[in-house]
Simulated scan of single mutants.
Amino acid sequence: MHAPSLPPTAPRRSRRKDARPGELLDAALDLFVEHGYAATRVEAVAQRAGVSKGTLFRYFPSKEDLFKAVVRQHLAGRIPEWHEEFAAFEGSSADMVRHCLQQWWARLGATRLSGLTKLVMTESAHFPEIARFYQAEVIAPANALLRQILERGVARGEFRPIDPDYGIYSLIAPMIFLLLWKHAMAPCIGPDQQIDPEAFLRSQTDALLHGLLAQPPAPDSAATAAFGKMDQI
């Protein structure tokens, strides 16, 4: 009698012996955005990249190192080029503000990268080291860029004098609101209640600029006439 044949063994998932760091960072970005910092396991990052955990640790000794590399690759590393772009900007300061918010949405807000900011905002209390890192590598340099935009407008007489250290938060606030809306409320509500990001930013920019312009538009003539009649009563 012949021994019964055994069912074929399922082949093990093939793993490459090596991987470029960029592939690991792309896999890590996906998982950090999908699951957050605490819930992301380095084993899962290695598996998604198709390598062993040992291969990942050759490049990034810890999850914290991996997260920092992701932020430097996709966010912090791009800030110098944004400084160069705005240094060469030839339009008005108002146009620069509009361009800044529009490009923030196109390059960051509308992409998976926005999930990194959401991650830091929601988990930094439990991981203060990544909060300090993000502050130093992303927030401070980005704030410096926004500060330059405001100072440019004031120096050219296009914006009224304001405290730029606090004025930058007027630029940041619409971005943060839209980011939180995208990741918190938008997935849970119907299409008739959604916010159009581009229309929202245009509206917020117009409201912001009317508060920044050195010479605000004159009041509506009809409204002025109505107030004049009231003064006569």
Rank of each mutant, 00 (worst) to 15 (best):
D18Q: 15
F227W: 08
A19H: 04
Q232G: 11
E43M: 09
R13G: 08
Y134E: 01
D18E: 15
K118D: 14
M230A: 15
S203A: 15
E84L: 10
T9Q: 12
F177D: 05
V138A: 01
P11Q: 12
F67V: 02
Q102Y: 09
I176C: 08
Y59C: 08
E129S: 07
Y166I: 13
S52V: 03
F133L: 01
S221C: 12
H74T: 05
P4Y: 10
P80F: 00
Q204E: 15
E23W: 03
L179F: 02
E123N: 00
A88E: 12
R132H: 10
F177T: 08
I130T: 04
Q215E: 15
M175I: 15
I139S: 12
F32N: 00
Y59F: 14
S124N: 08
A39I: 04
V138R: 03
H83M: 10
L150A: 08
E43Y: 07
E81C: 09
D65I: 00
Y166N: 11
G190V: 05
R58A: 11
A225V: 10
L178H: 04
A131P: 01
M185N: 11
Q193T: 09
P219H: 10
T40G: 05
E85L: 14
L24D: 01
I130N: 00
Q103R: 15
P4M: 12
Q148P: 03
D163R: 06
A46N: 01
F177W: 07
L150N: 06
R48M: 09
Y169Q: 07
C188H: 15
A69R: 02
L171D: 01
L75W: 03
Q215W: 10
M230S: 13
S62C: 05
D196C: 09
A125S: 11
P21Q: 06
I233R: 15
L25D: 04
A218H: 07
F159V: 05
P141K: 02
D220C: 10
K17T: 14
L113R: 09
V51R: 02
T117C: 13
P141F: 00
M175F: 10
S203I: 09
Q102R: 14
D65S: 13
A155I: 07
S114D: 09
